[in-house]
Nucleic acid binder design. Structure first.
Length: 567
RNA sequence: CGGGGCGUGGCUCAGCCUGGUAGAGCGCCUGGUUCGGGACCAGGAGGCCGGAGGUUCGAAUCCUCUCGCCCCGACCA
């Protein structure tokens, strides 16, 4: 491709609307233009890059025996009603009606359509397993699109679905995907983490997310490199830091004491002189319309996902102050478990075995000391606590750190959720009907592009991994008007093409500085500069990421680039 | 949906408070001089100031409504 024939509208300044780096650079480097909130035009550079990403995905999916299909984005309501998700998806689903008034929607994921397809086709265990996938546009009416291409309302997703006769088969399909995802993200040049993810209230299911560390991310992950542990904070477990003081000894009875105006843990710590680790915090949640009292160590935070797992509820919210007043006869800030009968009490496992703690008295401005779980109240113990920075790995005791990440892929053992609700069954060897077990696996294509930019950029612009850069090399004759440089550039371009190198020839009549700046901004990994040493048969090869230059012969330049690309 | 910010040539912004009929830099076009890190000179094109209504002799500017975009939160398959 010749630059003069490529539409690359680079900008000198960052557009005001962009805040995160990948968004700024995508606009500035002429990759994308916004049409509306969360809806983008992909210009030639973005499209080239996205196609390369898709090709990598395609090759690795095909390599595990997955079969590419293309399903409609426009879906009839019926299949979504069968699974129950027509209602569950709520406002996140784009809905429309056809001319006869029939309900339709734009697909946000394709479990329903894939299951409906399989149900109509697959009859026998002999036809299993199957892995079906597509690379297709998804639509989600996000409450708040943001961060450029990171959270949008229309995006490209690789989604695949596995169909197996038995759980052991699902395990195989899942492992195939996990291995393929490693290869895909490695080939895309990303540094990423595979983390254990929250598997929802379905039980027994397994889930991993693939995350790239980035300040622009929205998910937090607990990581312990030495132990090889990484988990989404929704799911992560750890050993908390030990209590700052030993528990008061003795078989003591609860004892009320006056704490005027002391509502928060910080206030209580200051007032009593007792460290937060020796206080017991009471948090009231309403889970699927039922109230629960959750007890945590004073310095710990409740994790809603874990509470959801503990209660089996899907709809969680903190109780309103009025409800709390009703149930406890006291305001938040003086709540505790002693004497509570109206609701189940859940004790965080970090408090198991502790004794003589301070907690609320269910009486405004009073607290109790010497409260011991199991003696002074009865509770069910669950892991409810959010892992915090400074906690340690449960087995090795090595410290955990918490990092902010962008999710680029997610693999999930669905189990029977869709096959059961939608009636996907096959006959087994004994002629008996068996419900098929499924998995689903997604990759956000644009997010790979964003993550690469977030990972690899500097003050000059992007520094794309060679495998997904719009071009692998840019040939920059300093003066294209110089016949010798022009001829050398065109010759080099042909040689690159012959070697299968995706080359861009900057044939523009621009000053050298402009060409260098543009090439660096759009992030092409290698540049061949043809300039003053051409008469001696020498050109310069510049590596974008390091900005290091080396001189090579014109004759050997294309082969040199090919060598660099081979890595 | 709650809170905040912003809408003025393609881009970044000034002008608004204190109403008098629109500016700068970059980009774009033409000509010339330049030319290894976003050149310079001269000339030029391009905006009913997001939209509607109101106040006023007169509105980019004041008032009301509305639409859009961004950020924080809520939410998030």
């Amino acid at each position: 491709m010749y630059w003069s024939q490529l539409y690359v509208p680079t900008l000198r300044e960052n557009p005001a609307e962009a805040e995160v780096v990948s968004h700024q650079l995508l606009l500035r480097a002429g990759y994308v233009r916004q049409l509306a909130a969360g809806i983008y035009n992909y210009l030639p550079l973005a499209q080239r890059s996205l196609l390369k990403i898709q090709q990598i995905i395609r090759e690795e999916m095909d390599a595990i025996g997955a079969q590419e299909m293309l399903l409609p984005a426009l879906n009839p309501a019926e299949v979504w009603k069968e699974s129950g998700r027509w209602d569950v998806m709520g406002d996140n689903m784009f809905r429309l009606k056809d001319r006869f008034g029939r309900d339709l929607c734009l697909g946000m994921t394709h479990e329903e359509v894939m299951t409906a397809l399989a149900r109509g086709e697959v009859r026998s265990y002999k036809q299993l397993p199957q892995i079906w996938y597509q690379i297709q546009t998804k639509f989600r009416d996000e409450p708040r699109p943001k961060s450029g291409l990171l959270r949008v309302r229309q995006f490209i997703m690789k989604d695949s679905y596995s169909f197996d006769l038995l759980p052991a088969g699902l395990d195989v399909s899942y492992e195939k995907h996990r291995a393929a995802y490693y290869k895909i993200f490695e080939r895309c040049g990303l540094k990423f983490l595979a983390v254990e993810a929250h598997s929802g209230a379905m039980g027994g299911s397994q889930s991993h997310e693939f995350m790239v560390e980035s300040a622009a991310g929205e998910d937090f992950v607990a990581v312990c490199e030495s132990a090889g542990y990484a988990a989404n904070l929704e799911k992560a477990v750890s050993t908390p830091v030990p209590p700052a003081a030993p528990d008061v000894e003795g078989d003591l009875a609860p004892e009320e004491f006056h704490t005027p105006g002391q509502k928060t843990i910080e206030q209580l710590v200051a007032f009593t002189g007792v460290p937060a680790t020796n206080l017991m915090k009471s948090v009231v949640y309403v889970c699927d319309d039922k109230p629960y009292l959750c007890l945590l160590r004073g310095d710990h935070q409740l994790n809603e996902a874990k509470l959801g797992s503990a209660t089996g509820a899907s709809d969680l919210r903190p109780a309103h102050p009025a409800e709390i007043q009703d149930w406890f006869g006291a305001a938040p800030g003086s709540l505790g478990p002693v004497g509570v009968k109206a609701m189940p009490i859940l004790l965080d496992s970090a408090l198991a075995g502790r004794k003589n703690l301070i907690t609320g008295a269910n009486k405004d401005d009073y607290h109790l000391r010497h409260v011991t779980p199991g003696e002074d109240f009865t509770a069910v113990t669950h892991d409810l606590r959010q892992v915090a920075e400074g906690d340690t790995h449960v087995e090795t005791g090595a410290p955990l750190k918490i990092v902010k990440t962008v999710e680029i892929g997610h693999i999930f053992k669905l189990g029977y959720k869709y096959s059961e609700s939608m009636g996907l069954k096959v006959l087994d060897q004994d002629g008996k009907e068996v419900t098929v077990i499924m998995g689903s696996y997604g990759i956000g294509v644009e997010r790979i592009l964003c993550a690469a930019i977030e990972l690899f950029h500097d003050e000059s612009g992007m520094s794309m991994p060679a495998s997904i850069a719009p071009f692998q090399v840019v040939i920059t004759p300093v003066y294209y008007s110089d016949p010798a440089q022009k001829e050398a550039a065109e010759q080099l371009y042909k040689e690159c093409k012959a070697l299968g190198i995706d080359a861009l020839l900057d044939d523009r009549d621009e000053r050298p500085g402009v060409k260098f700046k543009d090439a660096e901004l759009i992030g092409i990994p290698y540049r061949i500069t043809i300039g003053k040493k051409l008469p001696q048969g020498i050109v310069e090869v510049v590596t974008r990421r390091t900005k290091s230059a080396e001189e090579v012969t014109v004759a050997g330049a294309a082969a040199h680039i090919a060598q660099l690309l081979r890595g």
